[in-house]
């Protein structure tokens, strides 16, 4: 872009429609006018004297246009909803609400579990691994997201978008569980690792069989394993004891490794149709 403005003489000739301006100069003048408000304004002031008929035409057009422009609403600057959707889609809102309700219920029922001799925070601990799995499913499964087919065909589809939405799931969930955990006296480490391990597990398995199926499998496995372990060890929180935490860390790392190794996934329609 040039910083040199149109000389007065040339601008005057241009305003009066002089056909003698060489084509290259004309082109340069017009290119400059497109980008320079100051020169356009100078041109506007010259018009009435140099080309009264053009000035009249412009005034006429403005007179016709102004009422319509006053009627039109300015383009709204509402971009919040779309920026938010880059992370948390509206399809995930019901899940977020459900997580909140589950967390509240877990706190409410905590007293009852304590009464039954199960120890504090059992309900929170048992819910912690399942909630992110459902969140990931809500954010990426074909049946849960109405825009799935449209999104799956876009260049952003794939692991980066899945990770973005997963991050949003965790950002919503962790504060909820943090409050619920603090209320019932559960240490963060005890639920955070299983929670993350199940999240990476869903993504890893989801890359192979589809997120919806992966989520179903993991939730089913959890609901079968916990009572089974409770029956054999007599402890509801057996899989979440502090000495089992390294196992959860290992699972999380394996899940993350599989996700990275199969990062080409999640770019096709989910198989569930």
């Amino acid at each position: 872009m040039s910083t040199e403005h149109v000389p007065d003489r040339l601008a005057g000739r241009y305003a009066s429609g002089d056909p003698g301006i060489p084509a290259d100069e004309l082109w340069a003048v017009e290119a400059h006018l497109e980008s320079c408000a100051r020169c356009r304004d100078r041109l506007r002031l010259m018009l009435p004297a140099r080309a009264p008929e053009v000035a009249a035409l412009v005034d006429g057009v403005w007179a016709g246009l102004l009422p319509a422009l006053h009627g039109a609403a300015p383009a709204p600057g509402r971009r919040r909803r779309r920026s938010l959707a880059a992370w948390l889609t509206p399809a995930m809102v019901p899940w977020a609400g459900m997580s909140l309700i589950v967390a509240v219920l877990a706190v409410v029922f905590d007293g009852a579990f304590r009464g039954a001799g199960a120890g504090g925070g059992v309900a929170v601990l048992l819910a912690a691994p399942v909630l992110p799995v459902l969140g990931v499913a809500a954010s990426w499964a074909a049946g849960a997201d109405p825009m799935h087919e449209l999104v799956a065909a876009t260049p952003r589809a794939g692991l980066p978008l899945v990770l973005r939405r997963t991050a949003a799931v965790l950002l919503v969930l962790i504060p909820i569980l943090l409050v619920a955990g603090a209320w019932t006296g559960v240490v963060i480490a005890q639920w955070l690792l299983p929670c993350l391990a199940f999240t990476t597990g869903t993504l890893a398995l989801g890359g192979l069989v589809g997120v919806a199926r992966a989520a179903g499998t993991l939730v089913a496995a959890w609901t079968v394993t916990v009572p089974a372990l409770a029956a054999t060890t007599g402890q509801w929180t057996a899989p979440l004891r502090t000495d089992v935490l390294p196992v959860w860390a290992g699972l999380m790392v394996i899940g993350a490794a599989v996700v990275v190794a199969r990062r080409g996934g999640h770019t096709a329609l989910a198989a569930s149709r």
Binding site: R78, E149, L150, V151, T154, P155, R156
Partner: peptide, 29 residues
């Protein structure tokens, strides 16, 4: 550089037309 309209396409009901198209433009980079 591909534009795609599926036979049955879903959308978020609360989005305005502009938000819907802008969201798709974002997804299409």
């Amino acid at each position: 550089r591909i534009g795609y309209l599926p036979q049955e396409f879903g959308y978020y009901r609360r989005f305005t037309v502009r938000e819907f198209v802008e969201y798709m433009a974002w997804l299409k980079e």
